[in-house]
Nucleic acid binder design. Structure first.
Lengths: 344, 344
DNA sequence: TTGTATGCGTTATCAG
DNA sequence: CTGATAACGCATACAA
């Protein structure tokens, strides 16, 4: 804190009135003499008085703080989500306490404890790729602290969730590849324990089934650490006798790693292999060729998540709900097999 | 908050001892019977007791919270900085309260007030592009709240600052353009009131001077809203009779907008016009051609900023200092005039 | 309309 | 080693 911030006590002493009157005047309550009220407010301004939120929290039993845990702050998807979260929180008079788990389950658990100790009114979480069970979240349920999961959500947890329809996204992506003429589509999958991974994978499988294309286990390669495992995965994908003519990647960074690998091998994109990414990160637009990608409504997801957790905070009996947002396919050069010859 | 979180009172009642003993046991203070200590700690674990930070803050007169204000959370540069900030803060036992000003001076002032009300132990700020004077920061000085400015810092404010040597960055960028054979270098400048803008501009001017190249006012075009004004600016740059053969852009997004414009006009890069960006955002690497860019040590800047503010918090007499970090030029295709014919 | 007393959860200062 | 009691800054029921 600082050296000597004025308190209501100081104001009271200077004005020779009681602290309760000062307290009431500052909050502009009705039953207080207009003159004394004005005197108090004037003095408060003059001394740059700011109410002590900490003390108020102790009494009101709420902090107006929402804890946020994301795997990595610097990932573009989370950047957009956090921006949306901050704007709606601000609008509703809440502050955000943003933390990153660095994809570590243990740190995630620690952060949850810290946020509890801070008496955050509610907590919103996007789980780390390491998180295997929901044990760390039980505390929250037990303590009755409102939680909303977003983007990456755990299974078997009774809580509100805000997610993108990953199944639809995956399906849409693969369907687009098929319609572009791909017959053998490889999938650079995500960390096995994440909901987004399995849902996108299921979308992939559903699309294949819809068009009666065979599923080849060898064409589905999980990348536990996302793009960090992507290069190895693509290599594996193209090491066999039969190689894919289309790739559906778990995110844009992985898609671009695949594209680079293919270009280096002299394989033309999209003519020989078409590629679809996920997230619509800025890089997908500027890459060469630009990458067709599934765009998730990140900012909106952030807004809805905060709205939902606030609803839970205000009404502790509010029923847990799952909000599913739709994603959109941004078609670009990496799958544009008709216009592909126009690419310079 | 929640319904019924256990307090030390509850623990005391259950164990039929006093709250002070419980308090001491929980903090593992020396003069307390090992047996009672164990009993307390066991019960605490059993009941999932978590200390109330709020109450502790009230008494300790510190919150272990550092307020952070950035213009936009979702910008890659700030993402990296925030990541560095969070990691060191976590390591030192501090929580971050991250806010975005959305480049608005007024919101920035509001956020500062909120953080003061929250009794943040210290505040770190990267000013909005709209911020013209330092009035909103005076309150902090007056109240003796430690402040550290980073990245975009205001002039005429006595406080610690952590910055990148933007002058050196700009100079390096332009020198590289000159050494690549450029003789007429245009500059897509930043918002006029920002320190980064003027410093990069000065670096640009210094480089021209060093190589005895003339300064043309018409080749320096400010972009008050960064990339949002970039297209208009490039158009202007190439509208006259004399056009540049090199462009130094205030950031990578602007550089890429320029590149797109040039490509559309059939102007070859880097042969006819070489381009340098700033920030080394992921897009600079994947763009076509990839963009030579000045890399700022964002993560490190975040770490150093938090370290500095914590130092000020711990020692209120700690002298304000300015830490200057060096940037690095990442050379890529957009300026590679020798290898340019190798670009596919 | 205003003041007094009490409490929020914790720590610190004393006595015992 | 342990237990009362008073703070921290504020809000509120109650009294005046």
């Amino acid at each position: 804190m600082s050296k000597q911030q004025p308190t209501i006590k100081d104001l009271a002493r200077k004005l020779r009135i009681s602290v309760s009157t000062v307290s009431r005047a500052l909050r502009d309550l009705p039953d207080v003499n207009p003159e004394t009220k004005k005197a108090v407010q004037d003095l408060a301004r003059e001394l740059h008085y700011e109410p002590n939120y900490i003390a108020q929290s102790l009494i009101n039993r709420n902090t107006k703080v929402i804890g946020v845990i994301v795997p990595v702050i610097s990932a573009p998807v989370f950047g957009r989500i956090l921006a949306g979260m901050h704007d709606t929180a601000q609008q509703q008079g809440y502050q955000l306490m943003i933390c990153q788990s660095n994809e570590q389950a243990e740190l995630e658990a620690t952060l949850i404890k810290q946020l509890i100790a801070f008496k955050a009114d509610g907590i919103v979480i996007s789980v780390s790729s390491e998180t295997k069970n929901a044990a760390s979240f039980d505390v929250l349920e037990a303590k009755g602290i409102p939680v909303v999961f977003f983007d990456r959500v755990p299974l078997n947890v009774h809580a509100s969730k805000v997610v993108v329809d990953e199944y639809q996204g995956g399906m849409m992506a693969v369907e687009h590849l098929i319609q572009s003429g791909c017959k053998q589509i490889g999938h650079l999958a995500g960390p096995p324990d994440l909901s987004i991974s399995t849902n996108r994978l299921n979308g992939y499988l559903a699309a294949l089934k819809k068009y009666s294309l065979p599923v080849r286990e060898k064409f589905i390669i999980p990348c536990p650490r996302f793009e960090e495992d992507a290069l190895k995965a693509v290599r594996q994908l193209f090491s066999g006798k039969e190689v894919p003519d289309g790739i559906f990647a778990i995110n844009d960074a992985s898609a671009i790693i695949a594209i680079r690998y293919l270009k280096k091998k002299g394989i033309r994109i999209p003519e020989e292999v078409a590629v679809v990414g996920f997230n619509n990160d800025p890089i997908s637009e500027v890459a060469h060729p630009s990458v067709t990608s599934v765009m998730e409504p990140g900012y909106e997801m952030g807004c809805r998540t905060i709205e939902t957790v606030i609803r839970h905070i205000r009404d502790h009996h509010f029923e847990a709900q799952t909000i599913v947002l739709k994603s959109k396919l941004m078609k670009r050069e990496s799958t544009d097999r008709i216009l592909s010859n126009k690419i310079e």
